[in-house]
Structure formats: C-alpha cells, structure tokens
Amino acid sequence: MRTILNKTAAILLLSLTALSAKEVTIYSYRHYEADKKLYKQFTAETGIKVNTVKAKADALITRIKEEADKCPADLFIAADVGRLVKAQEEGILQPATSELLQKQVPKALRDSNNFWTGFTVRARIIAYAKDRVKKGEINSYQDLMLPKWKGRVIARSSSNIYNQSLLSAYIANHGEKKAFLWARAVKNNMAREPEGSDRDQMRAVAAGIADACIVNTYYVGLLTNSKNEKDRQVAEKLAICFPNQAENQTGTHINISGGAVCKHAPNKANAIKLLEFLTSSKAQSTFSETTSEYPLIRENATSKLLKSWGPFKADPIPLDTIGKHRKAAAKTFLKAGWK
C-alpha cells in the first residue's frame, strides 16, 4: 500500500515538474492585445503556457534586477532598442540564439552578441498637411530646422522614448553638438510646447495648428484604421515623408520591438522557442495588419497602407549604438529646452 502511495506521489511530482517546465514567463512592455492572440496561438502549437507581467520597461528592469536569481522571467520584451541595451548593461540578460533565429532575423535587427532579438520594426517619419505642404518640400529631419518652418512644426515631449532614440541616432551619426543645434532649431520652430501623443500631433496638424510633425509609422496606421471616423478623417488630410532618403543622407531612423532572454531564465529553451515563433513568417505576417508595425523583412508587409508607402532606405547605424547614446540624448533635449 505504502509503495503504491509512494509511487503515485512520485508520478504526481514528476508530472508536476513536467507541467511547470511547460511554461514561459514574459516581462513585457508591449501591451498590445494582438500580442495576446499570438501567445495563445503559440500555446496551441507547442503546449507551452505563456505567463505575462506587463509594466513599463524600466520598472521591469528594476524588478528583474531585484528578483535576481529568483526571477521567474524568461523573456524581457521592450518596445524600443534603448531599453534592451539598458537591460543588457544592467547585466540581467544572457546571450541566447538558435540557428532558426539567425536565419529569421536580419543581422542589423539583432544584437551582435545575441543578447536581444528584434521582432517588429517601425520608422520615425514626418507627417505633413497635404493641402499646405507640397510633396518634396520636406525631405529630411534637417529640413525642419529651416526658418521657413517657424511656427509650423510640432512634436511630442522629449521625455518620449521614440524622440530620444531619434536623437540618439542623430548623435551617433553627427555628434552631440550638431544634435543640440538640431533639437534647438526644431524647438524654436514649434507652433506650441510639446503635448500629447504622436496621434495628438497628427490631429493638430490636420486641424491647422501646424503643418508638419514627427511621428512613428504605426500611429499613422492606427489613425487610418481607427474605429473613430474623426481619426480616419485626420489620416485623410495627411501625407507622410520618409526623411533622409537622398544618396548622401543617413536614411530614415528605425527602431524595433524586441525580446531578450533573462540571465536567470528558468525556461531558457521555451523562451528561445517563443522568440523563434514571434520571428517566424507566420507571426511576422500578422503585425502589419494588427499593430501596423513593419515585419522584420519590411518588404513582406501585407497591410494595404504599409504597401502603399513603398520601400524606403533605413538608417543602417547599428541599433545598439543608438541604445548607448540614450542618456546623452535626454540631456541634449533638456539643454535645448525641448520640453
């Protein structure tokens, strides 16, 4: 009797440990509902349960650091390369890769030391009012410095990470001094102090408050596909420009959402599997439709809107360089008085 009991206990225990290994825990800054659907699909295919903790990237980094070797997180997901690099600098990640990942993710969109892997791409572009700005009048980020744009430009606050990454790239390409001059000149050309989100900037441009604004590509997608008719009307009034496309120019600034395996990940193999899933062609094909983000291979975007914009030249600067200049960028913005 006792042996039977012992055996059942042992089997139970074994199956419990087996069960517990059939999971992966993500600490994620991405709050998208579409991601949740992808995780469900992943569970259906692999039987691996996905647990999520969602918070701001920096809070998650602090949390992983404090939890140290007791941290249940397998995967850290951020919506910006700056945070991934910060996590790496804080020593909470481990290098992790697989043949599949190497194959699926273009080299420029993953860390050279395999600490992180991108899975979606967005570009920071200039949107302008069709009726007041002629096509070709704005061609580069630098154009926004010109006196002719005085009182005609708006952008969101400098504490926003997308602006900071843009300026980090500027610093990496042109140096701190030039970045300061750019930020200062654009700030002086602003029609109003920065307020609101990227979406709000576009609404203000459509209303005539300003003629051009700096926004991320997927926000244009959000407006175009919004449930709110007013938003769609806003999108109607705007045209976009991928800046710095000329041959001697840097190309449009891009950024990624990406994942990284945590240093003390209890389920490292599952974390890699999830990254492989997110970068697989099946998952990749969904992003352009659901969140209006570009897939890793931009030409594969299926959404009508993204296709209509056509191909563009992206700034080839390594993404980790952008991450490394993020503090200098924040400081430069503060100095330039860009609120």
């Binding site: 709050h31 998208y32 509902e33 647990n51 999520t52 903790v53 979406r199 959000l222 449930k227 969140t291």
Partner: peptide, 20 residues
C-alpha cells in the same frame, strides 16, 4: 504577480500604450 490583469491596467494598456 504573473497574469494579474485589472480593469485599470487593461485601460492603461489600450489608452497609453496602444493609443486606441
């Protein structure tokens, strides 16, 4: 803890992160 969604975090996710 993991998977601890509340009404507030759900609202926040859609308002602030997705701007929907």
């Amino acid at each position: 803890p993991s998977n601890n969604d509340t009404l507030a975090t759900k609202t926040y996710g859609l308002f602030a992160a997705e701007e929907r």
